[in-house]
């Protein structure tokens, strides 16, 4: 099956109500066994009985989280290098956050500024351009920091990773569809990369929700306006698998975003343009085929006027 023929079915959170079954039926996904990736659930990985009941198909979990634990236990050098890379990535994220904080505050103030329209517009553009430049720089840095590990330990250089990769490939080849659950997006992305799974998904139908949806995009953006310490500025976390282009996903946006703060929504929209910021709430279903939105049910997008509006299929 070519990449163009593959469907990406993107969903919002599957609680309190699930819509994966209805969305799959509407999309006409093929019969057969489905592979699941639930590494985002971490210790609860492979706890898929409920999912199996909902989906009504045979499921086999790829157990990426458990496989990674096995690899870290078995290969000390790999584990040490992985930890070192993660520490450096954390440090990079911290430094990025330091700079982001100031730029984002300045941009928000500028977006709310009054005065001569032309002059304010020019400052707005520049404030957003500064943020976008910082985001690009951060993406570049995270790629640079991650590269040495990826070059030293990958599915061709490490027999251990190669064995797991081969096992995973066989399972995926025997399945008609791959499901990717939500959970911890950092853990999920990390495990997908470690075993080179992202490259195995290109020619597969993929159904993904929440964190699973986020990793399919080209960029992964972290956000939460209602954490115990109050809202934080959205952060680029890194590149995603790039299986869907032109979108950045914001799962559970109605809870996690302060929708009434229009300058904040406007800033998000303009900061990540030309990608569309897609809000995926409970009940949302977005079918993407050949990089085009085929259908969109209860899906919204962030707009330049600071509202979150309905996303329409192309």
């Amino acid at each position: 099956m070519s990449t163009e023929q593959c469907m990406r079915l993107i969903l919002g959170p599957q609680s309190p109500a699930h819509n994966i079954d209805a969305a799959m039926m509407a999309a006409g996904l093929p019969e057969g066994t489905f592979a699941t990736i639930t590494a985002g659930w971490q210790e609860a990985e492979n706890d898929i009985d409920t999912l199996r009941e909902i989906v009504g198909r045979p499921l086999v979990d790829l157990r990426l989280y458990a496989r990674a634990d096995d690899v870290f236990r078995t290969d000390e050098a790999l584990a040490a290098a992985h930890r070192e890379r993660q520490n450096r990535l954390k440090e990079q994220q911290r430094l990025y956050r330091l700079r982001l904080k100031q730029l984002a505050v300045a941009a928000r103030h500028t977006l709310r500024a009054d005065g001569d329209a032309a002059m304010v517009a020019a400052e707005k553009r520049h404030a957003i351009a500064q943020l976008r430049a910082l985001d690009r720089h951060h993406l570049h840095r995270t790629e640079s920091i991650g590269r040495p590990f990826g070059e030293q330990f990958n599915v061709t250089s490490s027999p251990l990773l190669a064995r797991h990769h081969e096992e995973i490939r066989e399972v995926i080849n025997g399945c008609s569809v791959v499901l990717i659950s939500g959970g911890n997006v950092a853990v999920l992305l990390n495990r997908l990369r470690l075993f080179g799974v992202d490259s195995l998904l290109a020619n597969r139908h993929v159904v993904a929700w929440s964190a699973g949806a986020m990793v399919l995009a080209e960029r992964v953006v972290l956000f939460h306006d209602r954490s115990p310490q109050g809202r934080r500025d959205a952060e680029i976390f890194g590149t995603g698998c790039g299986l869907v282009s032109g979108h950045v996903y914001f799962p559970d946006a109605s809870h996690r975003l302060q929708e009434r703060d229009r300058s904040r929504i406007e800033l998000l929209c303009r900061r990540f343009a030309p990608d569309t910021c897609v809000a995926l709430d409970n009940g949302a279903a977005l079918e993407v085929r050949n990089s085009r939105v085929a259908t969109a049910v209860s899906v919204r997008r962030l707009s330049r006027d600071g509202r979150i509006v309905r996303l329409r299929a192309a």
């Binding site: 939500g182 997006v185 929440s210 115990p228 310490q229």
Partner: peptide, 18 residues
């Protein structure tokens, strides 16, 4: 305790999207 602990030791809420 909540405000103090979560400020000093922010949890993975930021990373989890269920």
């Amino acid at each position: 305790l909540r405000s103090g602990l979560s400020w000093l030791y922010p949890g993975p809420l930021w990373f989890v999207y269920e």
